[in-house]
Simulated assay, not measured.
Amino acid sequence: MSRRCRAGRLTAMKLLALGAAVAALALLPGTASADELPTFGFTDCPAPPANADPGTWRCEAFVSQGKLTIGGQAIPLGELRLTFSEGKVNGQYAQVFGALRHEPVRVPGLAGTTLQLRYGGYSDFQGNDERRGELDIYAELRHPLLRKGCSVGTAAAPLHSVVHDDPAVPPTVISRNPPTFHFGVVDPALALPATQGCGPLGEFVDRKLGLPSPAEFHQTTYVQYKQL
């Protein structure tokens, strides 16, 4: 075999190896591919205020996977969907909450019990150097033996969550058109009170969940923007 042929084969092998290395990098934590994207929904997008500055408003649709950890017990929260709109009014930043949607999930250690997160009436998604955002929520607990209205936090006295960027899931640009991103957030100090309105079994539920207690809330999120 000539030197030219051998050199050509070596070059081809190096290119194949480089391609394999690039493909492997795409699978490392902190990256995400378009193949993994969920379906985004914008039907809950709130309209801009009547006095909104034209051309400045967009809707953000979040699709997340969450986990709540109380002591050493993890409660997978499954999928959470959240929407809000943001823009400017008279040159100043403004935002309008849309909706938080969460299907009930089973609570480990409490057979037949489900947990469903609800919006608590306050949100602020304007991030800064100290945190990514804030959201008030409460958790409804359901079981045939628990009273209707059993919850951790209430609509009148919700849990206040302040989330920060999660270094384990750094922000990743998925697409520029439409703008789509992937990132993680964590609230390391979510204070959970004892249950309320659960009836005679409330204390039993508190013991099983270890309430009241500090907790950690983790969330990995895909978000897509739509101009309004």
Results as ranks from 00 to 15, higher is better:
residue 168 A to L: 10
residue 194 A to D: 04
residue 86 E to D: 14
residue 178 P to I: 06
residue 146 L to A: 03
residue 91 G to I: 07
residue 171 P to Q: 11
residue 162 V to P: 02
residue 86 E to P: 00
residue 162 V to K: 12
residue 181 F to S: 11
residue 80 L to D: 10
residue 80 L to I: 13
residue 143 H to K: 08
residue 179 P to G: 08
residue 192 L to F: 09
residue 159 L to I: 13
residue 156 A to I: 01
residue 82 L to A: 10
residue 83 T to I: 09
residue 99 A to R: 14
residue 76 P to H: 05
residue 87 G to S: 10
residue 110 L to A: 06
residue 171 P to C: 07
residue 135 L to Q: 12
residue 85 S to H: 10
residue 149 G to S: 07
residue 84 F to Q: 13
residue 78 G to Y: 04
residue 126 Q to M: 13
residue 87 G to W: 07
residue 188 P to Q: 09
residue 80 L to W: 05
residue 176 R to L: 15
residue 148 K to V: 12
residue 134 E to F: 03
residue 185 V to I: 15
residue 157 A to C: 00
residue 186 V to T: 14
residue 128 N to Y: 07
residue 94 A to F: 06
residue 162 V to N: 00
residue 145 L to G: 00
residue 157 A to P: 00
residue 119 Y to P: 11
residue 121 G to Y: 04
residue 174 I to S: 04
residue 90 N to G: 15
residue 190 L to Y: 08
residue 143 H to G: 03
residue 151 S to L: 05
residue 104 P to K: 05
residue 127 G to T: 09
residue 182 H to D: 00
residue 106 R to E: 13
residue 125 F to M: 15
residue 108 P to R: 08
residue 82 L to E: 12
residue 167 P to L: 06
residue 87 G to I: 11
residue 117 L to F: 09
residue 117 L to C: 02
residue 168 A to P: 00
residue 197 G to M: 07
residue 126 Q to L: 13
residue 127 G to L: 09
residue 75 I to V: 14
residue 155 A to T: 01
